Computed example of a mutant assay.
Amino acid sequence: MRSLILAAGLVLAGCAHPWNIADVAPGTPRDLVIARAGQPVRVLPLADGGQRLQYTLQPLGRYAFIVDLDPAGRVTSARQVLTETNFQRIEPGRWTRGDVEREFGPPALVDHVTSFQGDVLTYRWAERNEPMFYWVYVDPGGVVQRAHPGMEFINSPQDRD
Results as ranks from 00 to 15, higher is better:
14 G>M: 01
67 V>H: 07
115 S>M: 06
142 G>E: 11
54 Q>L: 13
86 N>W: 12
7 A>K: 05
129 N>W: 09
23 D>M: 03
135 W>I: 00
88 Q>V: 04
46 L>C: 04
52 R>T: 11
15 C>V: 12
57 L>N: 08
121 L>H: 03
109 L>K: 06
44 L>P: 00
95 W>C: 05
114 T>I: 09
21 I>K: 01
30 R>E: 15
135 W>R: 10
33 V>G: 01
13 A>Q: 07
46 L>M: 14
4 L>N: 04
62 R>F: 14
23 D>V: 02
75 V>T: 11
17 H>Y: 10
131 P>S: 15
27 G>N: 05
119 D>Y: 00
18 P>K: 01
113 V>M: 05
147 A>F: 02
62 R>W: 06
160 R>G: 09
90 I>V: 15
116 F>H: 10
69 L>D: 13
20 N>L: 02
60 L>I: 12
18 P>Q: 03
144 V>P: 03
65 F>E: 11
37 A>F: 01
44 L>Q: 04
86 N>P: 02
115 S>N: 13
102 R>F: 15
51 Q>C: 08
127 E>Y: 07
16 A>C: 01
99 D>M: 07
139 D>W: 03
88 Q>S: 13
52 R>I: 10
7 A>P: 00
103 E>V: 03
56 T>A: 14
138 V>L: 12
53 L>M: 11
19 W>Q: 10
68 D>M: 08
83 T>F: 10
107 P>I: 12
100 V>E: 09
135 W>G: 01
66 I>L: 14
157 P>D: 13
45 P>F: 03
77 S>F: 07
143 V>G: 05
6 L>C: 03
152 E>M: 11
68 D>R: 05
114 T>M: 07
119 D>N: 06
69 L>E: 12
124 R>Y: 09
40 P>G: 05
3 S>T: 09
33 V>D: 00
153 F>I: 15
147 A>I: 04
120 V>M: 13
31 D>I: 00
108 A>G: 15
19 W>T: 06
159 D>A: 15
83 T>R: 13
159 D>Q: 11
143 V>T: 15
27 G>L: 02
128 R>D: 15
27 G>D: 06
26 P>K: 11
44 L>R: 01
90 I>P: 03
48 D>I: 04
142 G>R: 04
123 Y>H: 06
57 L>Q: 14
99 D>I: 07
148 H>V: 12
104 F>L: 11
34 I>H: 00
58 Q>C: 08
70 D>W: 11
148 H>A: 14
89 R>Q: 15
160 R>H: 14
55 Y>F: 13
144 V>T: 03
33 V>H: 01
96 T>R: 14
25 A>D: 08
80 Q>A: 13
44 L>A: 04
47 A>R: 09
6 L>N: 05
5 I>Y: 11
2 R>D: 13
126 A>S: 14
96 T>Y: 11
134 Y>V: 06
62 R>Q: 14
156 S>C: 01
43 V>Y: 02
65 F>H: 10
14 G>T: 02
74 R>E: 15
64 A>K: 06
136 V>Q: 07
35 A>N: 02
111 D>G: 09
103 E>W: 08
27 G>H: 00
22 A>F: 02
102 R>V: 06
47 A>V: 12
78 A>R: 05
